[in-house]
Nucleic acid binder design. Structure first.
Length: 627
DNA sequence: CGCGCTCCCGCCCTCTGCTGGCGTCGG
DNA sequence: ACCGACGCCAGCAGAGGGCGGGAGCGCG
């Protein structure tokens, strides 16, 4: 990234220009990228920074914002913005100097946390002298120098990504050291670190290596390089005084290899070289079965195993087998050891995999990163979004193998098969009443509707009783059901319905409120008036005649025995449409439990009774058995 | 170089629970 | 005939388990 871009900026200098809160998008990119790789963020125009104070400031012309120094994943949301600067002619004495200034906006604390130090790429101007400078200007009130550590200088060969071990030199800046001079004799490089009272220090290179035209400056407050032979910025003054001496020891120290593209650091050249290949698209190993290419032979072999079904890693506790050892380990954690290393800090949840914890945490944060493109729904994971999209497409991928009904979700189909086609279908008994419900969720609805406590008083519609549970109220009100609650004040008559009592009272009072408009005859009930009107005053009235299928005579009323359902249909003037024959019916006539005699009707038979008879006479009337 | 391990993303599954339409029943 | 209650049922979303597989790195 930076290497190629920066190299295109000849005669420019790079400046750490500003710190800002990292934009949300930038954060996501960082997260997506693992948060451990620096990105070439183009800074927005509003990032115009304050200029460095001091002598340099006036002599430098700012050019353009070039880089954002993304901090490590664990760091705060700050970005160091690099900006290329040009020196004016006034800065003659500073010619060929690369200027770095680190500033920060007011109120924003600079945090460049470990483990990942920031990397600054500096391109030097065409070298006109042997001395190269890097100046770092720090305003003390903004950024404590103890928090800044110049960790390493890499003098890189042009366009070579891999740093030469020999060109690397570690530098540590001691707090009180006014001038730190670091040497590495073999390379004829000399680094000079100076810190002024204005928190300004220089790192001067006196390189004789003409190939070195790039400098990587690593800035960090961390002690990433804290190795046994390297001093750190936080060490005491006495130790700082020895810093030069300690640095000299780096000649024989354990050396590390820093990737110039990302934050990768390795102590082994081989690992470093292998890592650098990850920054290329080189994938030389081809799968001859699917033509997919891979970076390493191991990856190819694992991939080919997925084609061949070769699973060398077998579980000792079950018959599962896997392509890689990692899959076996994970399987064992899930199925056998139940080891869950990833624990949620907000609840007791723990998971086998980090990704599961990450997904779980979204249930705490409410984050829904997966937005539906057709509605406002957003999901916490990809699968839910995919499942949701079926509501737009109408797709029903699950089909019942018995009745071929289709379903959107497998669980719905499973319940369907269980409830509709299954044997020994489980039922759920309500713990508070005799209700049995097929589904647990419906039982929950039942409980909520009928058995939940009601703060409001539930009053009986027939009496003064009060309840706080609907079920209790309903049960209580049923006790009023067969009760002849309406009692006549004049006789022993009692009935269930008020309108019946109203009509009965008229037998005592003689009241006949329904008068025929044609003959002034009065009736106690409206239906009697209606029957009178139809019979004597309606010319279009044709009385229905029901013929008995056995004797052939016509009758105005009939009854149909419909079988063992205890229901008979009653037709004719003044009759109801349905007559429910229950325990009150005369024995031996209709009620099936009483048994059928020779004169009893058969199911489905049409019988007649005398026209004009009431219900009781109908039930007691003579019936003809149909053929 | 290969092995072992970790990390990460993706996919699919199950279990769970809520919702609303529908049919039936009873008042 | 009407209406409210309620169980049945499919639709749908939340949460989590389990596995497939690519990628990268430490280390022998």
């Amino acid at each position: 990234m930076a290497a190629t871009e920066i190299s295109a900026l000849s005669e420019q200098f790079t400046k750490i220009k500003e710190l800002e809160l990292m934009p949300e998008k930038g954060l996501k990119e960082e997260e997506k990228d693992g948060g451990c790789r620096e990105k070439d963020h183009r800074s927005p125009s509003e990032l115009e920074a304050e200029r460095t104070s001091g002598a340099f400031q006036d002599s430098v012309l700012q050019e353009e914002v070039e880089l954002v120094l993304a901090p490590s994943e664990e760091s705060e949301k700050h970005i160091l913005t690099l900006q290329t600067v040009h020196f004016t002619s006034e800065a003659v004495e500073l010619q060929d100097m690369s200027l770095l200034s680190i500033q920060q906006q007011e109120g924003v604390q600079v945090v460049v946390q470990q483990p990942g130090p920031g990397l600054l790429w500096l391109e030097e101007a065409p070298r006109q002298s042997l001395q190269q400078y890097v100046a770092i200007s720090i305003q003390q009130e903004l950024y404590s120098l103890q928090e800044i550590e110049v960790l390493q200088f890499h003098a890189l060969e042009e366009n070579v990504m891999v740093a030469s071990e020999d060109s690397k030199l570690a530098v540590s800046l001691a707090e009180t050291a006014g001038l730190i001079k670091l040497e590495e004799g073999q390379e004829k490089n000399q680094l000079l670190a100076e810190r002024t009272k204005e928190q300004l220090f220089f790192v001067e290179t006196m390189s004789g290596d003409e190939r070195s035209d790039e400098i990587v400056l690593t800035v960090s407050n961390s002690n990433v390089e804290e190795q046994e032979d390297q001093p750190t910025a936080g060490q005491a003054d006495a130790e700082k005084a020895k810093s030069t001496k300690n640095q000299r020891k780096t000649k024989g120290a354990k050396r590390t290899f820093h990737c110039d593209v990302c934050m990768f650091i390795s102590s082994r050249m081989s690992s470093f070289n292998r890592h650098m290949k990850t920054h290329t698209n080189e994938k030389p190993h081809l799968c001859h079965l699917c033509l997919k290419t891979f970076r390493t032979v191991t990856l190819l072999r694992n991939h080919v195993n997925t084609h061949t079904g070769t699973r060398p890693y077998k579980c000792n506790d079950c018959n599962m087998a896997f392509v890689t050892s990692g899959e076996l380990v994970r399987h064992r954690r899930y199925k056998h050891t139940h080891e869950k290393p990833f624990k949620c800090s907000m609840c007791k949840y723990a998971s086998v995999e980090a990704s599961k914890l990450k997904r779980h945490v979204r249930s705490h944060t409410g984050e829904r990163p997966f937005q539906c493109c057709q509605c406002s729904y957003a999901s916490r994971d990809t699968y839910k979004l995919k499942r949701h999209m079926r509501t737009h497409s109408g797709e029903k991928p699950y089909e019942c193998h018995i009745c071929h009904t289709r379903f959107t979700q497998s669980g719905t189909m499973k319940i369907h098969i269980l409830q509709k086609h299954g044997e020994n279908v489980p039922k759920y008994q309500c713990p508070h009443c005799a209700t049995i419900i097929a589904r647990k969720s419906d039982l929950r609805v039942h409980m909520r509707n009928l058995h939940a406590y009601s703060a409001a008083e539930l009053k009986c519609r027939y009496c003064s009783a009060v309840f706080h549970e609907r079920y209790a109220l309903i049960q209580h009100q049923k006790t009023h059901k067969n009760e002849k609650r309406f009692k006549c004040k004049h006789c022993s008559y009692a009935c269930k319905q008020e309108r019946h009592m109203t009509a009965h009272i008229r037998t005592h009072t003689g009241e006949k409120p329904f008068t025929c408009l044609f003959c002034n005859k009065c009736f106690r009930q409206k239906q009697l008036l209606n029957a009178h009107f139809r019979k004597y005053h309606d010319a279009n009235f044709i009385p229905t005649v029901y013929k008995c299928s056995k004797c052939g005579k016509g009758f105005s009323r009939w009854i149909l025995w419909v079988g063992n359902s205890e229901v008979a249909e009653l037709g004719g003037p003044g009759s109801g449409s349905l007559l429910r024959l229950q325990s009150g019916c005369p024995p031996g006539l209709h009620h099936p439990k009483a048994g059928l005699g020779p004169e009893d009707p058969l199911p489905g038979e049409l019988r007649h009774t005398t026209a004009g008879t009431g219900l009781s006479s109908l039930l007691q009337g003579t019936l003809c058995r149909a053929a």
